[in-house]
Simulated scan of single mutants.
Amino acid sequence: MNIAVVGAAGMIGKRIAEEALRRGHQVTAVVRNPDKLSEYKEKMNIVRANAVDPSSIAEAVKGHDAVISAYGPKFGEEEELLEAARALIEGVRRGGVRRLLIVGGAGSLITDSGDALMDTPEFPEELRTLAKAHADAYGIYQESDLEWSYLSPAAIIEPGRRSGQFRIGIDRLVTDESGSSRISVEDYAVAMLDELDDPQFIGTRFTVAY
């Protein structure tokens, strides 16, 4: 499959691109700064694009079978996430691609208390604005007519090992016996590519955690 990964230079995007390569897919990295992926130039096609410009996205994704967006705004520029969501939908549509998978946020997942994770007392105050932006962007994707899937991570996502073993949920935060909600970036990438290779969640959100 020919896949375009928007934001492939970031922590999550890079591992998604690596997982796609591992599975034999052709990968185009769509990034702001191609120099950040210079070590991958023999493994994937690298193109420059502006994630908030529909025309730029359309040109970058044209001819691909699917687009995976791992776009993330800089700290303090969270509102750009909404602009990027609209631009991505329009750009993917103009580029003639129907399948769109999105790296989402965990803040709007529902906890055992019935509250969204971002509304619980334990949620870091400095991340609330970003979590709210992710939740609003999710609403934008829900209104899209594309074949979209939105993958929310666990409450904590960080680099680790690739086990290929995790649990899947829909709108509720997945926790273990101790109440912890974690996933490695590597296993998050596995879940994303599993959904690409064998779609189970077209037109909806899902989440993964140990």
Rank of each mutant, 00 (worst) to 15 (best):
74 K>W: 08
148 W>N: 07
112 D>F: 10
141 Y>V: 00
87 A>Q: 04
135 A>S: 05
135 A>L: 03
59 E>V: 11
68 I>P: 00
46 I>F: 07
40 Y>R: 15
80 E>L: 13
127 L>P: 00
65 D>S: 14
110 I>T: 14
132 K>R: 11
27 V>E: 08
31 V>D: 15
88 L>V: 08
23 R>G: 02
38 S>W: 02
21 L>Y: 05
89 I>V: 11
81 L>T: 02
138 Y>K: 08
34 P>Y: 04
110 I>P: 14
122 E>D: 09
137 A>V: 03
101 L>I: 06
20 A>V: 08
20 A>Q: 12
41 K>N: 14
96 G>K: 11
146 L>Q: 01
139 G>M: 10
45 N>T: 12
111 T>M: 07
127 L>V: 00
97 V>E: 06
66 A>R: 11
80 E>P: 04
38 S>F: 08
62 K>N: 10
148 W>Q: 02
125 E>Y: 05
97 V>G: 09
65 D>H: 15
129 T>Y: 00
137 A>S: 03
57 I>L: 07
17 A>E: 11
134 H>S: 00
138 Y>L: 06
87 A>C: 09
25 H>N: 12
56 S>A: 07
36 K>H: 14
117 L>F: 02
90 E>G: 05
110 I>F: 08
139 G>I: 03
142 Q>L: 04
140 I>R: 05
98 R>M: 06
45 N>A: 05
39 E>R: 15
135 A>P: 00
30 V>T: 02
129 T>E: 00
126 E>P: 03
121 P>D: 12
73 P>V: 15
38 S>D: 15
112 D>G: 08
57 I>Q: 09
139 G>Q: 09
89 I>M: 04
76 G>V: 02
27 V>H: 01
104 G>E: 09
30 V>W: 06
110 I>S: 11
81 L>K: 02
55 S>W: 14
46 I>T: 12
109 L>D: 07
139 G>Y: 06
15 R>Q: 13
85 A>V: 02
53 D>G: 13
142 Q>C: 05
63 G>M: 14
16 I>F: 07
25 H>M: 14
28 T>S: 11
135 A>T: 01
28 T>K: 10
44 M>R: 03
51 A>T: 14
136 D>K: 12
99 R>L: 08
97 V>T: 03
106 A>H: 13
103 V>S: 15
127 L>K: 00
43 K>L: 11
50 N>Y: 11
79 E>C: 02
84 A>K: 07
15 R>C: 07
131 A>Y: 05
81 L>S: 03
63 G>I: 05
143 E>H: 01
137 A>L: 04
106 A>D: 15
94 R>Q: 12
22 R>A: 08
31 V>E: 10
75 F>T: 05
74 K>L: 12
132 K>D: 01
50 N>W: 10
23 R>H: 06
39 E>I: 08
148 W>I: 00
42 E>Q: 13
124 P>K: 00
25 H>C: 13
73 P>C: 05
47 V>N: 03
